[in-house]
Design a protein around this nucleic acid. Structure first.
Lengths: 129, 129
DNA sequence: AGTCATAGTTTACAAATGTAGTCACAAAGA
DNA sequence: TCTTTGTGACTACATTTGTAAACTATGACT
């Protein structure tokens, strides 16, 4: 099952720090939303039901942790985006951002070094595969 | 208002070719879905209501065209993805794909030339801004 | 003229989503 | 002991989305 937009906000806090109690989750989520406590509780239960997070009881409270990891979700969502708009490839996305001048000089440098590293890996036959 | 997943499928055919009659839209969408005619009609009316497409009557038929353009939607969706998972930047996304070895040698070359061009533009002060 | 195929409009209905309210219980404090 | 407060479970309700069915109007064909 999928993670909805607002559920994502909740599980994101758990990706940043876990385990947390419901109180901690509510506190952190409310730092950048105006959602009611109960709303956040509902989102947590939906994530539980969808099996994206788990919890263990310690004393009288539960401590919540993510099951589904951020990079898994990022992977799926990225692929969907690429398929929907960029023929399934990264380069057209990059080209899009390039056209719209949304890439800073510093980011350019970062991208260059990522590319450079990739090329080196390929040149070396990439023994770590 | 937002474009839903299945609405996107419909408007995508209009991005590829427009204007089209409803019959043409249905035909093209059904080339890669098994949606019922009426389903597609409903999606078209929702896109109309949301003002993402327009239509003009010619004789007794309407000819439909997109109002919202693909690159606008791609822009918004891309930004959302980057914000949600990659700190709002392209490079971490690229790094993610790099790690997962989802980038072919050819794409690497494409990326390199995009980068190269960007650097040249910056070096020239990018007079076309 | 009658029938069929197409296009267009309106209505339907379940599941998912956003956004809570209500109720019960137990630990903590007055 | 009584009350407050945090936690958890269950219920609620409007909107959006997916997925059509039903009905209407109008050319096209027989």
């Amino acid at each position: 099952m999928n993670i909805s937009e607002s559920e994502l906000t909740v599980i994101t806090t758990l990706w940043q720090q876990s385990p947390m109690t419901i109180g901690q989750i509510i506190e952190r989520v409310q730092q950048h939303t105006d959602w009611h406590d109960n709303t956040i509780k509902t989102l947590v239960s939906r994530l539980l039901k969808k099996n994206h997070i788990s919890r263990v009881k310690d004393g009288r409270q539960f401590f919540y942790s993510p099951i589904t990891q951020q990079n898994e979700v990022a992977e799926v969502e990225s692929k969907q985006l690429l398929n929907r708009f960029f023929k399934g490839k990264v380069s057209p996305l990059l080209a899009h951002f390039a056209e719209n001048k949304k890439i800073s000089q510093q980011e350019l440098n970062e991208i260059e070094s990522i590319i450079q590293e990739l090329k080196n890996n390929i040149a070396n036959g990439d023994k770590n595969d």
